[in-house]
Amino acid sequence: MKIRPYGDTLNDGLVQVSFTLPIALSAKATQAAKELAKNMGLINPSVVHSEEIGKNFSFYIIYGALNAFVDLEKIKVKELEKSSKSKKEIEEIIKNNFKKDIVVIGASTGTDAHTVGIDAIMNMKGFDGHYGLERYQGIKAINLGSQVSNEDFIKIARKEKADVLLVSQTVTQKDVHLKNLVDLVELLESEELRDKVILIAGGARINHELAKELGYDAGFGPGNFAEDVASFIIDELLNRKED
């Protein structure tokens, strides 16, 4: 099926865009904004609002029709097959399949000081009514908090004989998170630990596809809770057991 944006009629392709240009507002500047909209592929763009927002800066809101469409059949995404089980089901599976507690270590790494995300997954209290991993029978959850260096993270993982590593990254400006996430993979590889753990990343700007690309086993963005992560972990552990 081919689709394009919907304004108020099927296939009208209507969209809105807004942006700032680094020039003062003038007839020429407004025309420039309009030309840009055309270059974006908008048909009949109309600058519905323009405003000077500081010396040599002007702001535009534009509506126009998009000529482009996408063919849904051709779109492939690496989506994590969510097998989400309930906390109870997960605990049951662990009890029946694993002799020891599954050791899960998590941290917000590098210089990142955001803990709410990793806490949401790991701490007793959990998030939005979903209990965290600490409350799961059969899981030993160790949350190291924030600003943990990759080196320390690995040291502790080794000491605790971790089965799973959870990494949270929130600050993404200038792609700091990418470097930090890749560094961890490289360090794990050089210490010959990468294959011994399930490595999972998460955060507001993380998704499964990105995480896979960076060499992680999975990635979780907003809207995911402990049971989603735990489900993935046990599925993966069971898979690896069979291999």
């Binding site: 807004s18 700032t20 927002i53 500081g54 800066f57 702001f59 400006q173």
Partner: peptide, 11 residues
Amino acid sequence: AIHTPFISDRY
């Protein structure tokens, strides 16, 4: 929830 402010966000 997205980024540090753009000039237009601030305005």
